[in-house]
Simulated assay, not measured.
Amino acid sequence: MDKDIKNKIRVLANKYADNLKIKVDQRVEDMQLDNKDHYLVYRVLGVTDQEGDLVDLYQNKGRFLYKYAGSFLEEAATICFIHKFGENDAKKVKIDNTLGIRPKQYEIDCLVNSKDAHEIKWRDATTDGDHITKEHNRIQVIKKAGYKPIRVMFFYPNRSQAIRIQKTLETLYHGIGGDYYYGNSAWNYVESYTGVDLKTILEEIATENLENGNND
């Protein structure tokens, strides 16, 4: 495996891990001064103050973790595209919304060769029906601009309503002439498209972190 690309992703992972720790540590410190009057309702519902502390703590940690996980995997995948095609032909771009006034522009996570418009998601567990309408509008604008909408989502949701949303989105993408990859097909797509086995790189980094005690 190309050591250069793995090193780039390792550096990126370290940056995100460090920033995540800083954010979480700061939030934990701030929470020490939080008002806990709402624990009254926790106790009414049979949750102790100690359990309430843990619930609030991990709820806050979870928000940061989901945000950083999504941003990291999007950027890691983009590094793979850039590794193959170069920064000029693989980049984030914004295009005007030609079918409405809100939003004024749509962002394409990684446009390759001014042709393939990649939407990169680590996972999408939304159950909001409006999400379908918004995504439909977005890919119509992308198609009208002359690009091919391609959705790459590495992890599929577990809940039935979220799965139904994703199946509808898959139908929309295929109906407009785009592609939709999720789970193993997403990892395989990135590898076949860029020549980089991103999943193996991440697995190796995760294993190294465990061996070095970085996941304590």
Rank of each mutant, 00 (worst) to 15 (best):
R138W: 03
G62H: 04
V11W: 07
E204Y: 03
R27M: 15
G146N: 11
S160Y: 07
H174D: 11
I79V: 08
G175M: 01
H131G: 07
K84S: 01
K36M: 07
G195S: 00
K148C: 07
L172W: 03
N158E: 12
D37V: 13
Y42E: 12
I120E: 04
K23P: 00
A186S: 06
R102V: 12
R10C: 08
W187F: 15
R164V: 10
H174P: 00
G195K: 02
Y42D: 15
N113H: 06
L20A: 14
E211S: 04
H131V: 09
D96H: 00
G129Q: 09
I101Q: 04
S185K: 10
T200K: 06
D130Q: 11
F85V: 00
G100L: 02
Q50W: 03
A206R: 05
I120G: 03
N214C: 04
K61N: 08
E170M: 11
D37W: 03
H174E: 14
Y173P: 02
L169K: 01
L210F: 07
Y181C: 02
T168G: 05
V24D: 01
E75V: 04
I108N: 02
D2C: 10
G129P: 08
A206Q: 09
F85E: 01
E119T: 08
L57S: 12
E203Q: 07
H118D: 06
E204R: 00
D197I: 05
Y173I: 03
N158I: 09
Y39H: 11
K3W: 06
D128I: 05
K91L: 12
G70I: 03
T126G: 08
K36Q: 08
V28L: 15
Q140C: 13
A145N: 10
L40F: 13
